[in-house]
């Protein structure tokens, strides 16, 4: 055998895992029948859908505001710069849980919203306390927090593109915006995409904190509610964990392909397609 220690450790680990699984399967407290019963329960799957929607809306808001904040931080205008800095200071300096509780209390702070001229006519007004807007508050709360982190990620990405790239594009007659779109952002993406993927996965799990708003129709809240009624917390936690793990796995696959797409051109290594082409050229292009 070439690697005896590898084999030995593998055997030991498999044995330990097998013992654990056997113990878990025979331990009634895990409540596997309850687990099976609720894994594909309609309430759970719709809660998973709500979790996914919260993630998507919060990330969309986070990326959108993050782009604006990063451009503000990179701009030469001192007013923009300091506004962005204060935003980041507040939203990165306080826990997201505390922020979510705050957004939950927002309707108590401001019962009415009026749109109009101060001390002048009102065009329309909304009674915030009367609306059930906990989903929106949860998504906005998560998104505003996320924006602060996305701003830093995007800023790092844009700053990573060498100045020569701006110059070469400008010298070819491109406008500032075309330079951004065709030259800078595609290269910045290589730096932006991996941490953004992590942020999406992290956001999926952070949505479990929105019970602070309170919003409880997402995966974790729903699982807790059901377990509160049937007095079986463990199987329902496992149900929620299974769903989180499944969604995260799908997201990780997507992240892998995105990263591969945006890293084209950075390696000297030839892709298999390029190698095939070169080999074909070498042999006079007889195959292919």
């Amino acid at each position: 055998m070439r690697h005896p220690w590898r084999w030995l450790t593998a055997v030991v680990i498999i044995a330990v895992v097998a013992l654990f699984l056997y113990g878990a399967a025979t331990n009634a407290a895990y409540g596997w029948s309850t687990y099976r019963k609720y894994l594909f329960d309609e309430r759970i799957s719709s809660a998973a859908w709500n979790t996914l929607q919260l993630t998507i809306w919060a990330m969309l808001l986070g990326v959108f505001l993050g782009v604006i904040l990063s451009v503000m931080r990179l701009s030469p205008n001192p007013v923009f710069k300091s506004v962005a800095w204060v935003y980041l200071w507040i939203f990165r300096g306080t826990p997201v849980y505390v922020q979510l509780v705050f957004w939950g209390l927002f309707p108590t702070l401001y019962q009415n919203m009026q749109f109009g001229v101060p001390f002048g006519p009102t065009f329309f007004h909304i009674n915030l306390e009367g609306l059930s807007i906990s989903f929106i508050l949860a998504a906005v709360g998560l998104g505003l927090n996320e924006a602060a982190y996305m701003a830093e990620i995007i800023r790092a990405g844009i700053s990573s593109v060498p100045e020569g790239q701006f110059e070469a594009s400008t010298a070819l007659g491109m406008s500032w915006w075309m330079t951004m779109r065709r030259t800078v952002l595609p290269q910045a993406m290589r730096v932006i995409i991996p941490p953004t993927g992590n942020e999406v996965i992290s956001m999926l799990k952070t949505t479990s904190l929105v019970t602070a708003v309170p919003y409880s129709l997402e995966l974790y809240g729903r699982a807790r509610d059901i377990s509160g009624v049937i007095f079986q917390p463990i199987p329902l936690l496992l149900v929620a964990a299974t769903w989180y793990l499944a969604i995260t796995s799908v997201l990780m696959v997507g992240q892998y392909y995105l990263e591969r797409y945006f890293s084209r051109g950075i390696s000297r290594k030839l892709t298999s397609r390029q190698l095939e082409k070169l080999a074909a050229a070498q042999t006079g292009g007889t195959h292919l």
Binding site: Q165, L172, P186, R264, G265
Partner: peptide, 21 residues
């Protein structure tokens, strides 16, 4: 930008777009 289209420039460090062939 319009004027620059008529003038080609070659740089010391090439400045090719690394993400394009």
């Amino acid at each position: 930008a319009k004027q620059r289209r008529e003038v080609g420039m070659v740089f010391q460090h090439f400045n090719l777009f690394p993400h394009r062939t």
